[in-house]
Design a protein around this nucleic acid. Structure first.
Length: 260
DNA sequence: ATGGCTTCCATCGGAAGA
């Protein structure tokens, strides 16, 4: 089963390039971020026409996450536990049942956090603490599970073309990276790092200043695997060419193939 | 660079993104 995560930066603006990529690569499951749409305005028709079930957790104007799946999506939960007052649509869970085993899916759009310091950065760190708590219970349950999405975290210097440009940024500050490590160290495997230790592996290139043309990218979209999921890892990759197509998102899809 | 693009909402500018 191929599972991808993709921050599409607006599902209404991206529906044509999204369906083109779905047709080309035919992933079984897709976790989407930044729908920038309420649920009722998501253009689900063109996606359903390609054989996908669609579960969304949208919000007016920004944020918004979704699960697309060729398999039925069961036990859907919306919103990250731990703060009833949090109205931002950044978390969705669901389960798909493959030929061999069930797979729990957690799709996330982690807060950007800039400018740091400030209230937006405080929200980011608090959100990461809630994510750690949810991740801890997933690990304890020994589920075959992936936690994937736009983490807005550059884990290491090798994950940026120009790491020195990011040292004061919310995506790369020590508190951000420490919080990331505390989550990964619960027992997760970073799928992309399971298949490559290379520099220059990126998932985002800014629209500005010719970042794509200069390959001035960062790796911030990640797929974390529980040990039970990592045992079933067959392959992983990044669909980098998507960034060079017409009217692209500033992110590209990151994917894994799991024997589930 | 107090933002060089891009999207959204809502108009003809501002917020948000990373």
């Amino acid at each position: 089963m191929r599972i991808a995560t993709f921050n599409i930066n607006g599902i209404k603006a991206r529906i044509e390039s999204l369906t083109e990529w779905l047709t080309d690569t035919s992933p079984d499951v897709v976790l989407l971020q930044e729908l920038k749409s309420v649920d009722e305005n998501v253009p689900r028709g063109p996606i359903e026409d390609l054989g996908y079930n669609v579960e969304t957790h949208g919000q007016k104007g920004f944020n918004g996450v979704a699960i697309l799946s060729k398999f039925p999506i069961e036990d859907v939960e919306r919103g990250l536990p731990g703060d009833e007052s949090d109205e931002q649509a950044r978390w969705i869970e669901g389960t798909v049942v493959g030929p061999k085993t069930a797979l729990r899916l957690c799709g996330l759009y982690l807060p950007n956090g800039n400018p740091a310091p400030g209230p937006k950065y405080d929200y980011k760190l608090a959100w990461m603490e809630r994510l750690k708590n949810r991740a801890q219970s997933i690990i304890k349950q020994e589920e075959t599970c992936i936690v994937a999405g736009d983490f807005n975290v550059i884990p290491e210097r090798r994950d940026a073309a120009r790491p020195d440009a990011w040292v004061k940024d919310a995506l790369f500050l020590p508190d951000t990276r420490n919080a990331w490590r505390r989550i990964v160290n619960l027992g997760f495997h970073d799928a992309t790092r399971e298949v490559t230790q290379d520099d220059g592996v990126f998932s985002f290139w800014d629209y500005q200043a010719g970042a794509w043309q200069k390959d001035d990218g960062i790796r911030i979209d990640h797929i974390l695997l529980t040990p039970q999921a990592a045992d079933r890892l067959v392959a992983a990759g990044i669909d980098k060419d998507v960034r060079g197509r017409e009217k692209p998102s500033d992110h590209v899809p990151v994917w894994v193939e799991l024997d589930v």
